[in-house]
């Protein structure tokens, strides 16, 4: 805030002129975002008040009926719980893996650049390739995982993770984590490098061992990174669609049916465009409130001054 006042006091510019400049600077970004987001959102909201079917042209406005129907729709609640579970485990797994790799990579050694580059690969993989590769690895008749596990007698019978309603979750989680960890790893790597080295020296002088230094210097230094990565992972996983869709389409027996998938199925398989739009609005609201609560929690704890 201080720098603004300084600038303005040293170079008084009329309010009008600033406003014009601000507009000029922000306009390109806003145009792009509004172009792609705002119109579809408004259109979606409009459709959510109708009983529109996908391939039928006639429809009428039915008020809040779609939204009321949601409350008695078991599948909505079921898929919502699934989404929350998936998001939680995916975010936890991604964070843990990304964090561990960042800590391991945060030291000077010979092949550091190689490892960094190699571990970055999954981020570039198109989701279709990821899904198909994992489906192949999991396969119980010709996949690598089962072949090796049975060959070394680690399991007696081949198991296809994706085909068992109780295990399909794990099968979906692994590729999601696999795709997402590189981004988290890079952010943590950056955060680790931003920690002031003199703090470690000070800790060393105070007689702290490695673990204590890690606990009292490294972790606090990483809090801003955690704050932002957690919320990005939550938002991205909760609203994500393509990996689960390509891997299981929500099956078997709806065991991996997430809210985004349920929305897709309602819109494009059951053709209930109106109802699906209402579900979409619900998803948006849920994420909106989660994010608000998250940031107010973060602000109250005072970890992250913003």
């Amino acid at each position: 805030m201080a720098k603004m006042q300084l600038l303005n006091s040293s170079k008084p510019i009329s309010n009008f002129k600033i406003r014009g400049q601000v507009l000029l600077f922000l306009l390109p970004a806003f145009t792009a975002i509004i172009f792609v987001m705002a119109y579809p959102m408004i259109k979606g909201l409009d459709i959510s008040f109708t009983n529109r079917l996908l391939t039928y042209d006639k429809y009428s406005y039915i008020g809040f009926q779609n939204f009321l129907a949601m409350f008695s729709d078991n599948f909505f609640w079921y898929s919502l719980v699934n989404s929350i579970k998936l998001t939680f485990w995916a975010a936890a797994g991604t964070l843990l893996l990304g964090f561990a790799l960042a800590v391991l990579l945060n030291h000077q050694f010979v092949f550091r650049d190689f490892f960094r580059g190699a571990l970055f690969i999954p981020w570039v993989m198109p989701s279709m390739v990821t899904a198909l590769m994992f489906r192949w690895l999991y396969n119980d008749f010709y996949g690598y995982f089962n072949y090796m596990l049975t060959k070394y007698h680690l399991i007696a019978q081949p198991v296809n993770l994706l085909a068992d309603p109780r295990l399909a979750w794990a099968g979906v989680l692994l590729p999601i984590i696999w795709c997402n960890y590189p981004f988290v790893m890079l952010v943590f790597l950056a955060a680790l490098q931003s920690i002031d080295k003199s703090l470690y020296e000070a800790a060393h002088i105070d007689g702290a061992n490695r673990l204590q230094a890690f606990w009292f210097v490294t972790l606090p230094g990483l809090i801003p990174a955690f704050v932002i990565v957690i919320i990005l992972e939550i938002i991205w996983t909760f609203a994500s669609f393509d990996l689960v869709f390509l891997l299981t389409r929500g099956g078997p027996a709806d065991s991996t049916l997430t809210l985004s998938l349920y929305i897709y199925k309602q819109a494009f398989e059951a053709k209930l465009l109106g109802y699906a739009s209402a579900l979409g609005a619900a998803l948006f609201l849920i994420l909106f409130f989660v994010t608000m609560m998250y940031f107010s929690f973060v602000r109250r704890t005072g970890f992250y001054e913003k």
Binding site: I33, V36, M37, Y39, P40, M41, K43, G44, I235, W236, A239, F241, S260, I263, Y264, A267, L273, A276, S277, G280, L283, F284, L287, F288, T291
Partner: peptide, 14 residues
């Protein structure tokens, strides 16, 4: 907040 709208619903209107 624009990240929070499910992409799948943007497809048809877009």
């Amino acid at each position: 907040f624009t990240y929070m709208f499910p992409q799948i619903l943007l497809v048809l209107p877009l």
